[in-house]
């Protein structure tokens, strides 16, 4: 019990002195994770769509060759970035580009670090999302495509209006997964000097030698971020599903029931004019 009280006191002291640093770290982590997840999803959707363009033996060879090439490139991209650690990719790109271009391209200063981190986390997320999106598209019932084709939709229209909205719903849990992984895994970006939440811990612990209290604080911080994220994602899923009930449309201004038809010249069935004619 004494230890616990001491821990809270230590955390209190740390927060008093370094609270701003922790908050800045958290903010940077959030910005990086959100942006990279969004860009990663866009990359993933692009790759997933390119990967599922159908072609048959009857198509011209140029189209087939092009599609095969695109699929090959996407495949290599996915396998390379899924198959290597992100921490290494960060180093590879951050130091590799200046190395190969004789410092013509380099990530200068704070902006450079931000840019490099964004790029690395985004393409990493994209590699995972490419497969998720492909799976999401495949999992939509082929009958949906046939239904769309049968009313004359092109491939692009079918994708845009019928398949992708359903695929997006299917992969939303995957997107959430990736976002939460990104929240935590952006911590490896400290390797190129990015000051996110975990980097704050390193500097604070280095200055105060209070490793455990700082780590405890970080644990709570990360957990708070991920819990809020998963709560928000559940809420979005619910919103997308729409309400489970529907209203019966009994009255619709555009439609007419029998007997309410009005002729432009002769009027309706209950007009006086009609009755006069009946009386003749």
């Amino acid at each position: 019990m004494d230890k616990l009280i001491q821990l809270f006191q230590d955390i209190g002291k740390l927060w008093e002195k370094y609270g701003d640093s922790y908050i800045t770290g958290m903010r940077n982590t959030l910005i990086l994770a959100v942006t990279a997840t969004v860009i990663g999803c866009l990359i993933g959707f692009l790759c997933g769509i390119l990967n599922t363009i159908p072609y048959s033996k009857n198509d011209p060879w140029l189209k087939r060759a092009l599609l095969t090439l695109i699929r090959g490139i996407v495949r290599v991209y996915v396998e390379v970035f899924r198959g290597t650690p992100m921490v290494l990719q960060a180093v590879f790109i951050f130091y590799g580009l200046p190395y190969f271009t004789d410092n013509a391209v380099q990530f200068k200063g704070n902006e450079g670090i931000w840019l490099a981190s964004m790029i690395v986390v985004s393409i990493n997320t994209g590699a995972y999302m490419a497969e998720s999106v492909r799976g999401g598209i495949i999992s939509v019932d082929p009958g949906q495509t046939e239904g769309a084709k049968a009313i004359g939709m092109t491939h692009v229209q079918t994708m845009l209006h019928v398949i992708l909205p359903q695929a997006l719903r299917n992969i939303l849990p995957q997107i959430g997964n990736n976002f939460i992984i990104n929240l935590k895994d952006t911590s490896v970006m400290f390797i190129i000097g990015f000051t996110e939440f975990f980097a704050t811990h390193k500097s604070v612990a280095g200055a105060t030698f209070k490793y455990f209290p700082s780590a405890a604080l970080e644990m709570v911080g990360y957990l708070a971020m991920t819990l809020i994220a998963s709560f928000l994602l559940r809420w979005v899923e619910k919103k997308l599903d729409g309400s489970s009930s529907y209203d019966l449309a009994n009255v619709d201004p555009l439609t007419m029931t029998a007997g309410t038809y009005n002729h432009p010249q002769k009027g309706g069935p209950f007009d006086d004019r009609d009755r006069k004619e009946d009386n003749k």
Partner: peptide, 21 residues
């Protein structure tokens, strides 16, 4: 163009194929 022709020929499927979204 297959999609232009298909817009003149309606089709009703065994499994309905209504757009779920």
């Amino acid at each position: 163009k297959a999609h232009e022709y298909r817009s003149h020929v309606g089709m009703v499927f065994q499994s309905f194929n209504l757009f779920n979204n």
